[in-house]
């Protein structure tokens, strides 16, 4: 080992983590900031803590307006490292034939980008984020106090990373199409042999369903979730016009996978749904004549510490922890 390498290894602030807290920034949830602490022990991943934390999280939207915020996490979440997943309207995640940094040169705001080849013969997946937002996120967890940031990911990539390492995809044999439902959008990903071969983002999210129900039923937006859970009326005709284009994209993705590897996709998963899953499934069966499987982020993951008995409110809203858990899981799998 050369002297420089030795000095570098001594002074490197970050090395492979086996204990990571995942945090989702910009989720703008009323419950708080989604946080999940994962630990890898003897090759097995386990949840140590999970909750929605009451932390100030106002994502800056313009350069210079970022207010310096410093987070102090509760004791159960003080892992050595933190994986941050950011959900921002300025962030982008897409396949790009041009590779790293493509399409960011002519933008007014400086972006930082990173790309990765997810599967052979596929254009790399490029994640981009405004530099000011990335710098703001990096300063949230100061040096010398647990945790400090070791990773900053785009929310959709984090969610996909978590699913890619999940037992659900493994049981499906690595061939699947998965939906990741966020408030404003839904990410669609196709996996071949566990590798991401196709990714698209659609501007249809959980909030669009709520808005449609609120508009059609004439109730307030906050009551839309309870309407979706209500059995007194069938909301499928209301949500069908919203979801049908999305399901059409799922069908196209399945066709793409068939053409690419001559394999019929049998498994379709949806992640991030907290309410109305049976309506999603009913409509999916009607449109695609397939079964839609719902995934919980904690499926197939052991529990330890505080996570052995999570509060009922957290268990019920667990799908909202999908991104935070995915960010931490991605770091653990990449270590």
């Amino acid at each position: 080992m050369s002297q420089g390498t030795l000095f570098g290894s001594l002074t490197a602030p970050f090395k492979a983590c086996s204990d990571v807290t995942g945090l989702e920034l910009g989720a703008d949830l009323s419950e708080g900031v989604p946080a999940v602490r994962l630990r890898k022990r003897k090759g097995r991943v386990e949840v140590v803590a999970a909750d929605f934390l009451d932390l100030p999280c106002v994502l800056p939207m313009l350069p210079g307006e970022s207010e310096t915020q410093v987070w102090r996490l509760p004791a159960p979440f003080r892992a050595p490292c933190a994986a941050l997943a950011i959900r921002s309207p300025h962030a982008s995640l897409c396949h790009s034939a041009g590779g790293h940094g493509e399409g960011t040169a002519d933008r007014a705001v400086t972006y930082r980008s990173v790309s990765r080849q997810t599967a052979p013969e596929m254009p790399p997946l490029v994640a981009s984020l405004p530099d000011f937002q990335a710098a703001w996120a990096a300063r949230l967890l100061p040096e010398g106090r647990r945790p400090t940031a070791c990773s900053l990911q785009i929310a959709a990539a984090a969610a996909m990373g978590g699913f890619a390492a999940s037992s659900a995809l493994a049981q499906a044999g690595g061939y699947a199409v998965a939906l990741f439902v966020f408030a404003e959008s839904t990410s669609l990903a196709a996996f071949q042999e566990g590798k991401l071969v196709f990714y698209r983002e659609h501007a249809v999210g959980a909030d669009h369903l709520r808005a449609a129900i609120s508009r059609e039923v004439g109730i307030e937006l906050e009551l839309a979730d309870s309407a979706l859970e209500d059995t007194l009326f069938d909301p499928v005709p209301i949500i069908e016009p919203v979801l049908r284009p999305l399901y059409r994209q799922v069908e196209i993705s399945a066709d793409y996978l068939w053409r690419r590897c001559k394999c019929q996709v049998e498994h379709f998963f949806v992640n991030g749904l907290t309410v109305g899953d049976e309506h999603w499934a009913k409509l999916f069966e009607r449109v695609m004549n397939r079964t839609l499987t719902f995934c919980s982020p904690f499926d197939g993951i052991g529990r330890a510490g505080q996570a052995v008995r999570l509060p009922e409110a957290v268990e019920k809203r667990a799908p909202l922890l999908m991104t935070a858990l995915g960010a931490a899981r991605t770091v653990l799998e990449d270590a």
Partner: peptide, 9 residues
């Protein structure tokens, strides 16, 4: 599976 860790930090 290939890692989807796209680290912007």
């Amino acid at each position: 599976n290939a890692s989807l860790h796209l680290n912007l930090l």
